[in-house]
């Protein structure tokens, strides 16, 4: 009958020679377990504060996008982000919903999933501003897989829903100095004026090395090809048929 009394087991463990196999395995397990416990409790306890900080950051960046884009502030009645009309759209049938529900998602097949996101949340919040009755601006949330992190941002489109007014990156964890350049004002300054689609409706927007020669191209970052591709693919996905493409069509025809 093995002795299962925890106190005597613990004493036996402490008394065991340090280099015995049992003690090595037990110590490795105990230390990893304690470390995992410390990290996860910190993450859970601080979670609400962290989320609030990230939300404030997102809001500040959206405000910065509005402030930095020429002509945008004048379009908005009142001041800043609060004058934006917020719509929660169900991407499956273009109906309007009351709140975002992250549990409703659509699985993407690997071929469709160019942004590398796995599943697409069906309910999305978009922001719009109107100039009188005409659409002046639409801001779409976009995200996708970069080189080593998820890149999140907002894409602002002009009244033709094809010309980029601005792109802002709110969250990324790419390599500092290389991929993280996607968040710098200098790189983002290339986006205003970029066209998403040609007349036939084909998505042409691209981030390419030495780009900028056509209205559809933006110059990629040297040494950060995969971060550059990540931004390109995330925009292509979200303005495409599985992203906001149908929403944009509905806005163009005035159905939404």
């Amino acid at each position: 009958m093995p002795d299962l009394n925890p106190i005597s087991l613990w004493q036996r463990l402490l008394a065991a020679p340090n280099d015995s196999r049992g003690k090595t395995l037990t110590m490795a397990f105990l230390v990893s377990f304690a470390a995992a416990l410390a990290v996860s409790s910190a993450a859970v306890l601080l979670g609400p504060r962290l989320d609030a900080n990230r939300e404030a950051e997102r809001r500040a960046r959206l405000e910065a996008l509005i402030a930095e884009t020429p002509g945008l502030a004048e379009v908005l009645p009142g001041s800043g982000i609060d004058s934006l009309e917020v719509l929660t759209v169900d991407l499956r049938d273009l109906s309007l919903a009351d709140a975002v529900d992250p549990t409703q998602v659509t699985e993407l097949t690997p071929d469709d999933d160019i942004a590398g996101i796995g599943t697409r949340p069906d309910l999305q919040q978009i922001f719009m501003a109107r100039d009188g009755r005409d659409l002046a601006l639409v801001i779409l949330p976009v995200y996708g897989q970069g080189y080593q992190s998820t890149i999140r941002g907002y894409l602002a489109l002009g009244p033709d829903l094809n010309t980029v007014i601005g792109l802002t990156i709110t969250e990324q964890g790419e390599t500092p100095g290389l991929g993280a350049t996607i968040q710098t004002p200098g790189w983002l300054a290339q986006w205003p004026g970029t066209q998403l689609m040609d007349e036939a409706g084909e998505i042409r927007v691209a981030v390419v090395r030495g780009g900028g020669s056509t209205a559809y191209e933006v110059d990629a970052i040297t040494g950060a090809t995969r971060s550059s591709n990540g931004v390109q693919n995330m925009i292509r996905f979200w303005v495409g048929p599985l992203g906001f493409g149908p929403v944009l069509d509905a806005l163009r025809s005035g159905d939404l």
């Binding site: 280099d19 090595t24 490795a28 230390v31 470390a35 410390a38 910190a42 962290l50």
Partner: peptide
């Protein structure tokens, strides 16, 4: 009670956990 063979890896595990906690507190 730290076995000599896995000494460094245990130290690094402890340090890494502390660093993540410190980083979360800062954030």
């Amino acid at each position: 009670h730290i076995p000599a063979q896995i000494r460094l890896i245990l130290q690094i595990t402890i340090i890494a956990a502390m660093v993540i906690v410190a980083d979360l507190i800062l954030q």
